[in-house]
């Protein structure tokens, strides 16, 4: 599959701090890729580099198959971006905003924008500052989509929305994706927002990529084991250990690539995306080696 976005060794430094450090990642064309990680992980920095707002300190980024360096204006017309908090001019009416979009974008689709706003019942003559949070988010999305982008980038699109508006926003975003021809890269610090909509995951923490790949593959490759501690330890020693918690004689571990039959005294459960992300975020910074003592007290 070709990539809508690929980065190699991408780094960005602010003074002495690396906001991004040697990030290599791919956003497959046609995917909905979730960029997740705690606040301060570098998500916004990465997205701002991708849309040309920031320059990388080091590394390469390719958009839609083209290296970004020197190509910015022509490439950016093929990319839609919605920054955090759906930035709109508060004193402009919705129609004013459409006019701004029409003037700034060569491939602007006015009919699409108007049709979307009508179906969402957004009052076109109201100033943006008086719209609800959900409506503002929908207007910002409409402006980005009417550009007819090939890659749509959204920074924390649902963070400030109430649960109903969040759901409506994601439904309408998925409708756009269902029409085809669009790749979406969206960030959130809450994985639960994106679990249903994304098919690719990139987990960022402290400026580096902790985990990346197809959501389905990642979920299938991991499992949660729990039960008597020594039985858990015996199984954990055979696979890649991601996270371990033990209380007295009981232990729970998240493992990767569990193979072969498992002791029936253990419970094996599928992970959901949130558990998986938490397991990687809790993980000790140095890669855990299954041969070293994994749980408090060690392997006997």
């Amino acid at each position: 599959m070709s990539s809508a976005l690929s980065a190699a060794g991408l780094s960005r430094r602010y003074g002495k701090t690396w906001a991004l450090h040697e990030c290599s990642l791919e956003v497959p064309a046609g995917s909905v890729t979730a960029l997740v990680g705690p606040n301060g992980a570098g998500k916004t920095t990465l997205l701002e580099i991708a849309v040309g707002i920031l320059e990388p300190t080091e590394g390469e980024i390719r958009l839609l198959g083209t290296p970004m360096r020197g190509q910015t204006p022509s490439l950016l017309s093929r990319i839609g971006f919605v920054a955090q908090d759906a930035p709109l001019y508060r004193n402009f009416t919705v129609l004013d905003m459409l006019q701004v979009g029409r003037h700034l974008n060569p491939r602007w689709d006015d009919a699409l924008a108007r049709d979307r706003l009508r179906r969402l019942r957004i009052p076109r003559n109201r100033v943006c500052g008086q719209l609800s949070g959900g409506q503002q988010a929908q207007v910002a999305l409409t402006l980005a989509v009417a550009k007819r982008p090939e890659l749509l980038i959204l920074d924390e699109p649902v963070a400030r929305l109430d649960p109903l508006a969040r759901r409506e926003f994601l439904e309408s975003l998925m409708e756009i994706v269902a029409d085809g021809g669009l790749t979406v890269l969206l960030s959130s610090h809450l994985i639960s927002d994106l679990e249903r909509v994304s098919d690719q995951l990139i987990l960022l923490s402290e400026g580096t990529v902790l985990l990346a790949g197809s959501t389905e593959d990642l979920l299938a490759e991991h499992a949660v084991l729990s039960g008597p501690r020594h039985n858990v330890e015996a199984v954990a020693a055979r696979c890649q250990l991601i996270d371990a918690r033990a209380t007295g004689t009981h232990a729970t571990v998240v493992v990767r690539r569990l193979e072969g039959p498992v002791d029936p005294r253990l419970t094996v459960d599928a992970v959901d995306l949130e558990e998986l992300v938490l397991a990687y975020l809790r993980r000790r910074p140095a890669p855990l080696n299954a041969a070293e003592p994994v749980l408090v007290g060690g392997v006997s």
Partner: peptide, 10 residues
């Protein structure tokens, strides 16, 4: 996807 907010590929 318009009622479940899931990825169309799913």
């Amino acid at each position: 996807v318009a009622t479940l907010a899931i990825n169309p590929n799913t």
